[in-house]
């Protein structure tokens, strides 16, 4: 059974289904008058953030607290911490304080695997480089299932993911989980922003798919990349790939509009999502707490690891 949650591929289908069921359980907890349970009393969860991410860190922090775990937060600008020795020192030191789970975010791919040699604690990947962001994928899958009323699969659903696919760990993990659940994923981006090894069907024009998709998933477009040579000039990008008011009107009435946040208004989003009735963007934020509670409880409290011993 699982000791870590680091990527959708590593977790596999059974683990993902178990986590989606647990997420639904946690969502009920979060609707209560007092949305807090004693399940992880006495456990310590350490947020280890080498890259800025206020939203993800707060979401994990709140998730741990709602399970009554104690939380520690270690943040460091990635530039000030060298890989190797100092990462190892950090992990070993915090482990010696009695940490039961590390929630790790790092700009380098693979760090959640690297640190397992230095700690016995459970490891949750909160985003590593361009590689993976599996809790985002879990909350995305749960949000879609909740909206369309499914509990075990997404068979037959078409999801368009739009934007900088190539540099996006969100695109990678969310694509993995949606395909594992049976959805058809298409990647919509300029050729320079598509991955060299395609992991889904690729389309160069948002207008080809916008009228028919069940889910439109807009990725955050990094402004610094807009200025680089990778991307068609600002105006052209907007013309072909941004969600304008006109495009939003073409979405099917039962479609979902999603975005992992934070949004770049005026870049990929030219429409106010609060004016798009199909928007599930705030549901994603709410469900993020439940999904992260599910992951932490599954690793620290469910006792599923006991069978190994």
């Amino acid at each position: 059974m699982a000791k870590h949650f680091r990527s959708i591929d590593e977790a596999g289908r059974d683990h993902v289904i178990r986590l989606l069921n647990l997420t639904d359980h946690m969502a009920e907890v979060n609707r209560r008058l007092h949305p807090k349970v004693p399940a992880l009393r006495g456990r310590t969860v350490c947020n280890l953030f080498f890259e800025d991410s206020t939203r993800t860190r707060l979401s994990f922090d709140l998730a741990a607290r709602r399970l009554s775990a104690d939380t520690l937060t270690f943040t460091a600008a990635s530039s000030s911490v060298n890989k190797g020795e100092s990462l190892r020192d950090t992990v070993e030191t915090l482990s010696a304080m009695g940490v039961d789970a590390f929630v790790v975010r790092h700009r380098s791919s693979g760090v959640p695997w690297q640190i397992e040699h230095w700690t016995d604690a459970a490891i949750v990947n909160a985003g590593d480089g361009w590689h993976a962001h599996p809790t985002q994928a879990l909350l995305d899958a749960y949000t879609i299932m909740q909206r369309i009323g499914r509990s075990t699969d997404l068979d037959g659903l078409e999801v368009a993911i739009v934007g900088d696919i190539r540099h996006s760990r969100v695109a990678r993990s969310t694509t993995e989980v949606l395909r594992l659940l049976g959805a058809r994923v298409v990647h919509v981006a300029p050729a320079t922003l598509l991955p060299p090894h395609p992991i889904a069907e690729q389309i160069g024009d948002l207008d080809e798919v916008i009228d028919r998709v069940d889910v439109l998933y807009m990725l955050r477009m990094q402004r610094e990349r807009m200025d680089s040579a990778l991307v068609p000039a600002g105006v052209e990008y907007v013309e072909r790939f941004a969600l304008t008011a006109e495009r939003a009107r073409r979405l099917r009435s039962d479609a979902l509009l999603m975005h992992p946040g934070p949004m770049n208004r005026g870049v990929e989003m030219l429409v106010d999502p609060s004016e798009v009735p199909q928007s599930a963007i705030l549901d994603q934020v709410t469900n993020g707490i439940s999904a992260r509670m599910a992951v932490l409880f599954d690793l620290l409290g469910s006792g599923t690891g006991l069978e190994d011993q």
Binding site: H25, A39, L40, S302, G303, T304, L306, E307
Partner: peptide, 8 residues
């Protein structure tokens, strides 16, 4: 919790 498998 933690002493035996708990599956909500």
């Amino acid at each position: 919790i933690g002493l035996r498998p708990v599956v909500p």
